[in-house]
Simulated assay, not measured.
Amino acid sequence: MSIIEAQGLHKAFDDGTVAVDRVDFEVAEGEVFGFLGRNGAGKTTTVRILTTLTRATSGQARVLGLDVVKHRSEVRDRIGLSLQQAALDPLMTGREHLQLIASLRRMRPARRTERMEELLTGFGLTEVADRLVATYTVGMRRRLDATLALLHGPQLLFLDEPTTGLDPQSRRALWSFVRTYRQSGGTVFLTTQYLDEADELCDRIAILDKGAVAVIDTPQDLKKGIGGKVLTLPATPEAREPAASVVGETACRFTDGVLQIDLPAGDDVLPSLLKRLHDSGIPLTGVTVTDPTIEEVFIRLTGEGLERRTQSDGSVAAAALARTVGTGRGGV
């Protein structure tokens, strides 16, 4: 079953800027679907269209079987949304935010109290629940925003770059939450510009380039599509030209002091290639050979790299998060 259906979505602003360029995709029930792209690629605008905050210039979108234009209120009632810029009042406490949203969602008083405590515990916010949001760290604010999105037990959750600016502990907590939420049967639409985040969390990834979808596939199949392994070595920009003469212009890239060369399939090509690179005057110190990554996929499709961030998996209050997500859906 498709939870999200987008057909020919197009968004152009009054100044002529095209943010979303005739985008088509579907999101299946129970998957984590990633929108991967640089800043300005159209990720947030797509989220705003799907969550009824912005109308597309043309095209159609259905969320949970509902047209996002004709059934705006119904869509909003059934989804959870955490935007990149959390809409929090610094002069309210975390608990007051939850109480306000619970009232707007018309949650029963008994269920409201139970659900609030589940979320505060699950996201490690119990000790700061009665402090003003003005005193919260960035990570605390992001976690509070996630609790607000989950309060009514949505079937579908939109997370717009949820780990941007977070400390490692908060990132690990959100990673753990996404996995637990999916295991409970929830569906996640995740926008990100972090390669490892998309590779680690997403069942499928859509790579965006200048508002258009360049490709959609699983992380594994995207990487398989590249072919062979990747040779990496420290180098200067001047090394790219002789390397290109050896392996071809499209097979080598230079970024951030590193030369990367795409190897043809087959283990027997490496010795002869290394000899030819050495003969061309390229120092072969610090050479590594790795499997293709989502970064290589992105560069092949767009010609540009993405921001790197190493994030380790882990969990914060994993048992509490499991209870929070597992008992929360449909709990209004």
Rank of each mutant, 00 (worst) to 15 (best):
E307L: 14
V325Y: 09
T45C: 05
L190P: 04
L306K: 07
G16R: 11
R48Q: 11
L66T: 01
G65Y: 00
A87W: 07
G225L: 08
T113E: 15
E96F: 03
P264R: 11
A243S: 05
S73G: 04
P264D: 09
G331C: 13
T164Y: 08
R172A: 11
T137Y: 06
R62F: 07
T236P: 00
D279M: 10
I79D: 01
T52H: 10
S2F: 00
M92R: 14
T250N: 13
G211M: 02
V258D: 03
S103I: 00
L166H: 08
L9D: 09
D313K: 12
A110M: 07
Q99D: 14
L148N: 04
E197W: 12
D256L: 02
L321F: 05
R323P: 04
E114W: 11
A244P: 05
Q260E: 15
G305R: 14
A265S: 08
H97F: 09
L157V: 07
R111Y: 04
N39V: 05
R323D: 10
G34K: 10
Q85I: 06
L119W: 11
R253G: 00
T126E: 15
R106Q: 13
T310F: 14
A6F: 00
Y136K: 10
A319S: 12
V287G: 05
Q193A: 03
A322N: 13
L9C: 11
N39C: 05
L231S: 05
E127N: 07
V215R: 15
Q193R: 09
A28D: 06
G34L: 06
L36Y: 06
V133E: 09
P264I: 05
G326A: 12
D199T: 02
P234H: 08
G328R: 10
R62E: 06
M1T: 02
A19I: 01
A146L: 15
P168H: 13
